[in-house]
Each structure stands twice: as C-alpha cells, then as structure tokens.
Amino acid sequence: MAKWFQADGPGYEHMDEQGIVDLVSAEEEEDICDEEDADETTEDATKRAQCPVSHAEAMRMFDQCLTWLRFQPEATVSNTSTLVELRELAAEKRQSSRKQSKIDSFFSRF
C-alpha cells in the first residue's frame, strides 16, 4: 500500500472521506456560480449539450473511483495513473471553460 501512495508523485494529496466530502461540497457551490456566469461559445455550448456530464461532475466521479480503487487489493499503479490522468483532463477542461470576470462586474454589486 505504501508503494501505491508514493507512486502518485508531488501534487496529489491523499484525503480521508470527510476531506473528499468537503471538497465535493465546495466544488458544487462553485459550479452553481460558474454556470450562471459562464460565457460559452456556440461550439462549446453545442458540445456541452451533447455530453450529459459536466467537467466538475466527471472530476467528482473520478475522485470516487480513486477512493474505491484505493481499497482494492488488485489495484495497480497503472490503474491509478490512468484514473488520475483522466481526472486531470476533466480538471483542465473545467478550468478552461471558466470565464474571467470583468472588474466592473464587482462594482455593479454595490
């Protein structure tokens, strides 16, 4: 089991179940705000309409799979690496689809 944790490399933290729940809860709240503020191109909107799973939801599912895999004695470094790579892909796509707020939008709240 120790080898499996060491194989992840830097940048990957190992959370307990409560940490995962807290992370997912925070991301759900953030996603609600992001969906309201998102400025997607027509092509992005079309692709998103075709895929019933959001990038954030995919990240959560990969996190759950990684948690499940952690408790499987048959798990290999290759299995884990593949799931981590797919989770990172979902994270990159989620980040690239976010819109940067304009500075004047902060002043319109007052």
Rank of each mutant, 00 (worst) to 15 (best):
Y12N: 13
E13M: 10
E13N: 11
D16G: 13
E17W: 01
E17T: 01
Q18V: 05
G19N: 00
I20S: 01
I20N: 06
I20C: 06
V21M: 09
V21H: 10
D22G: 04
L23M: 07
V24E: 01
V24C: 01
S25N: 09
A26V: 00
A26E: 02
E27P: 13
E27A: 12
E28V: 12
E28L: 02
E29L: 01
E29F: 01
E29D: 02
E30D: 06
E30A: 03
E30S: 00
D31Y: 12
D31M: 07
I32C: 03
C33H: 01
C33V: 06
E35D: 02
E36F: 03
E36L: 02
D37L: 02
D37E: 07
D37H: 06
D37T: 09
A38V: 13
D39K: 05
D39G: 00
E40N: 09
E40T: 06
E40C: 09
T41A: 01
T41W: 06
T41N: 06
T42P: 08
T42M: 10
E43G: 07
E43R: 13
E43M: 11
E43A: 13
D44C: 08
A45N: 11
A45D: 04
A45S: 05
T46W: 14
K47P: 03
K47Y: 12
K47I: 09
A49Q: 14
A49H: 07
A49T: 14
A49P: 11
Q50V: 08
C51V: 14
C51H: 14
V53S: 10
S54I: 00
H55A: 06
H55N: 12
H55S: 04
H55L: 09
A56G: 15
E57G: 10
E57W: 13
E57M: 15
A58R: 15
A58N: 12
M59L: 05
M59R: 06
M61D: 12
M61H: 13
M61P: 11
C65G: 03
C65F: 12
L66N: 02
T67V: 09
W68L: 05
L69K: 07
L69W: 02
R70Y: 13
F71V: 09
F71T: 13
Q72V: 10
Q72H: 05
P73Q: 01
E74A: 04
E74H: 00
E74V: 02
A75H: 00
A75G: 04
T76I: 00
T76L: 00
V77N: 01
V77T: 07
S78W: 12
N79M: 09
N79L: 11
N79I: 06
T80D: 13
S81M: 11
S81I: 03
S81H: 11
T82C: 15
